[in-house]
């Protein structure tokens, strides 16, 4: 039986062998691997890129104090971006399942329509949820737009739900019973986080403080974005990546406020719109910034 960490290592190895850069998790809280600039910004523009990374994904409203066997405040996603997507991308994906010991001649695998959309990122794509013996184990998406921009090269995004996949392989009914490493269960490693973050997110987070933080980060992102000048000669050094960090902070604070019940439904739309404007602004500036200089500019 492969442990949780062995499954992760095997998948990373598999994708490294197929030309992916193995990135480490991004160090700012995000709700999904897609939000990390390694995906959100790298899929923009004409440069091919291949990357795989495990991203802890925080969804404050999904926390269950460690009580629910299937729901987590923070779960781990393996995010794979293949830009442009190779012709045999589905075969490669199925190969990755075989690489962690799933014999697909004896299991039922289905690709069921599921188009992905992230309104706060102005991003959407066409794809499937991958069902293995009735369990959704991955999301497979051909990105079409990101930050409201049509993509030059169509990347394939493969997102593995690592806990689910492992529970399946280890035949465990509760995620907390997964063997993380020999002698350590998932519960040993993660239970305290689930409990304490649930308490914080649902009961103790100070709403005025979170709002204040949200506005501070929002203000900083907006201040920076306003200063980006597409005509500036030295625009390549403009700190768009740090600007985007501020947007990510906003997004996580928004999710926490939401879990805390501090956002009414009407407000929700408005606040999401505020985050989207910033994310789209960064994506547009980034696309401009990363463009190769034209021949005329080089000649000067």
């Amino acid at each position: 039986m492969q442990s949780f960490q062995e499954i992760i290592l095997n998948l990373k190895h598999y994708w490294a062998d197929r030309g992916c850069i193995i990135q480490e998790p991004y160090d700012i809280e995000v709700g999904a691997g897609t939000m990390v600039s390694e995906t959100f910004l790298r899929v923009l523009g004409p440069k091919p890129y291949r990357v795989a990374y495990v991203q802890p994904s925080r969804r404050p409203a999904d926390g269950r104090y460690g009580d629910n066997p299937n729901r987590l405040y923070k779960h781990l996603q393996l995010q794979v971006i293949l830009k442009p997507s190779p012709e045999d991308v589905i075969e490669q994906y199925l190969g990755s399942l075989e690489a962690i010991g799933i014999d697909l001649r004896h299991h039922d695998i289905k690709l069921e329509e599921d188009n992905w959309e992230a309104p706060t990122l102005g991003a959407w794509g066409i794809g499937w949820q991958v069902m293995l013996d009735g369990l959704e184990i991955s999301q497979f998406t051909y990105f079409q737009q990101c930050g409201g921009i049509d993509l030059d090269l169509v990347p394939a995004e493969l997102t593995y739900g690592l806990e689910r996949l492992t529970a399946f392989l280890q035949v465990k009914d509760s995620v907390y019973d997964i063997e993380w490493a020999p002698g350590f269960t998932y519960g040993d490693v993660r239970y305290q986080d689930e409990l304490q973050y649930s308490v914080y997110n649902f009961e103790m987070a100070d709403i005025p403080t979170l709002w204040k933080l949200f506005e501070l980060h929002e203000g900083e992102a907006a201040r920076l974005l306003k200063q980006y000048d597409p005509k500036a000669a030295d625009k390549k050094r403009f700190p768009l990546l740090p600007t985007y960090d501020q947007v990510l902070k906003c997004s996580n604070l928004f999710n926490t406020l939401d879990a805390r019940g501090a956002i009414s439904v009407t407000e929700r739309q408005v606040v999401m719109g505020r985050v989207r404007r910033l994310a789209v602004g960064v994506a547009q500036a980034w696309t401009d910034q990363q463009q190769e200089r034209s021949g005329a500019e080089v000649a000067q």
Binding site: H106, G134, F168, D173
Partner: peptide, 21 residues
């Protein structure tokens, strides 16, 4: 299923576990 048989019962047990959850 989208395969010919479930000789080892993997698929049945997998689906049963998903439904139980």
């Amino acid at each position: 299923m989208n395969i010919d048989a479930d000789r080892e019962g993997f698929v049945r047990r997998g689906n049963e576990r998903v439904l139980r959850a």
